[in-house]
Amino acid sequence: MVERDDLFTYIGMHLLCAGESISTAESVTSGFIQFSFSQIKDASQFYRGGMTVYTLEEKVSLLKVDQDEAYYCDCVSSNIAETMALNVAKIYKTDWSIAITGYATPVEKSGGKLFAYFSIAYHGKILISEKLDLLCGTESVNAQLYYTDSILKCLRLELGKQKLPDH
């Protein structure tokens, strides 16, 4: 828990000091990233909100994901995650955004595998877009927690690359 507390503190302090905001769009993590941001001190100062978009219809109508592409890939691809990240930032008018889509349980469409694609965007540009793979025996809640922790660690790295304004 100390590591998670340090991660939350770093993310919160960086966003506060930079005067920047963040939003999220989640599918496979079903709100775990949103919950994580709610645990950060003074979150209301930088966290604008998030959405859980679990179905193809919601991804298409709310986040402007291409319907044909989403149908073809079961809404799970790097491009889908990137589109989700860019459009959730527009909806919430945030500097930063995070999006994730994937599988926490093995299904036929995933080839029996567990994986997710996530993207982090900053000022309308994708900074990172990656795939996370897990072992098939991973329990779904542990998969969701792993995805969430991995993304927040990547966010921390991306925040660390940004120069903070002088005060």
Results as ranks from 00 to 15, higher is better:
residue 100 I to F: 00
residue 75 C to M: 11
residue 57 E to F: 03
residue 76 V to F: 15
residue 37 F to P: 11
residue 43 A to D: 01
residue 115 F to G: 04
residue 95 D to F: 02
residue 119 S to D: 09
residue 56 L to V: 07
residue 144 Q to I: 14
residue 136 C to D: 09
residue 48 R to N: 13
residue 107 V to D: 07
residue 38 S to G: 15
residue 143 A to F: 09
residue 108 E to G: 01
residue 126 I to K: 00
residue 119 S to K: 09
residue 95 D to G: 09
residue 110 S to W: 13
residue 98 I to L: 14
residue 119 S to M: 10
residue 104 A to V: 04
residue 32 F to W: 13
residue 96 W to N: 02
residue 132 L to D: 00
residue 58 E to C: 12
residue 81 A to N: 06
residue 112 G to S: 03
residue 37 F to C: 09
residue 56 L to R: 15
residue 35 F to K: 08
residue 39 Q to A: 05
residue 61 S to K: 07
residue 104 A to K: 09
residue 81 A to S: 13
residue 72 Y to G: 01
residue 86 L to A: 01
residue 72 Y to I: 02
residue 147 Y to A: 04
residue 93 K to S: 15
residue 66 D to Q: 02
residue 129 S to T: 11
residue 75 C to Q: 03
residue 143 A to Q: 06
residue 41 K to M: 13
residue 135 L to P: 00
residue 64 K to M: 11
residue 123 H to R: 14
residue 39 Q to S: 04
residue 88 V to S: 10
residue 70 A to L: 09
residue 122 Y to V: 00
residue 133 D to L: 06
residue 89 A to L: 04
residue 89 A to H: 02
residue 74 D to A: 10
residue 135 L to V: 07
residue 92 Y to P: 11
residue 37 F to K: 03
residue 63 L to Y: 05
residue 147 Y to I: 05
residue 41 K to C: 08
